[in-house]
Amino acid sequence: MTTDRLRQSMTTDRLRQSVTTDLLRRWETLILALLVGVVVWASLGVDGFANGSNISFLLLDTTEIALMALTMTLVIVAAEIDLSVASTLGLSCAVLGWLWNAGLPIEAIMPICLLVGAVCGAFNGLLVTRLGLPSLAVTIGTFALFRGLAYVILGDQAVADLPPAYTGLATASVGPVPLMTVLVAVLAALAAVVLHATGLGRSIFALGSNEEAAYFSGIRVKRIKFWLFVASGVMASLASLVYTFRYASARADNGVGLELAVVAAVLLGGVSIFGGRGTLPGVLMAVLLLGVVRNALILADVANEVLNFVTGLLLVASVLAPNLGAIWRRRTSPQMEGKSP
């Protein structure tokens, strides 16, 4: 068989797979349809939604969530979770404010912030991989720890006299597209390539699905998990820089509650909370969907409580829907495991 023909048969193979069997793909189609639907609805029915400056704002406003969702996707596909991201963001903001007050140049502070994120991630990673603790418990602990540390460092003060060169950069646009959205797009492309087109990505799927079999295949399970937590921490501190400059305010309580928005986006994007399944494009669409819903509801003057309710509803639906499929299949499948009691 010539290479060409092989390639051709592969594409048809892939095509067939994408239309028929793959539940994940169908899930992404659903999210995309939902996204398009919400955008159309908001454009027609919500005043002020469909104009350039609102769309720019909407995109800019999802930056931090999108950034953290990228690494969160890898972490959750690896069957772990990092609930400390927003606290890491807060700690990094606090360090930034403190050092800025102390008179350090911002160019020196930024790498230190990224280092703080890396150390936070490494701490999570060590507890999970070396001591074998569940990441859910570890990162609930560091969720409180890092945020507490942020308050210890900066108290309740807000550091606002940040250099305009950087605050301007955070809100700058390239044409109609916010500069930060370009940053997200570049990093998202990188994360997607790592997850879907490298050996590391294959390993992450494998260990998320069956850690033991991955280890028996020579995959360095612990090392990969450790570095995923480090990456998650670094990404959180990168998000903290964007957040601080965007609002021109470094506070210890920056980004409180964002971890839930991040996890919600990842799960809504079709990543299995049990690991081993999910795609990055799905997550990006979910980030956008949540952003659009939020933006449209705010414009439509819907109360904040209702907003949380809708986000929560989408999240529950996202966890429930794929499992409904599985439950339905189990009911109708001939291969039912009939272990009678």
Binding site: R202, F205, R277
Partner: peptide
Amino acid sequence: QQGLVMDLSIERNIGLAGL
């Protein structure tokens, strides 16, 4: 449990030890 990642495809399993 040890030999295969049951959810992964045949080709990915075959490739897993020699990425």
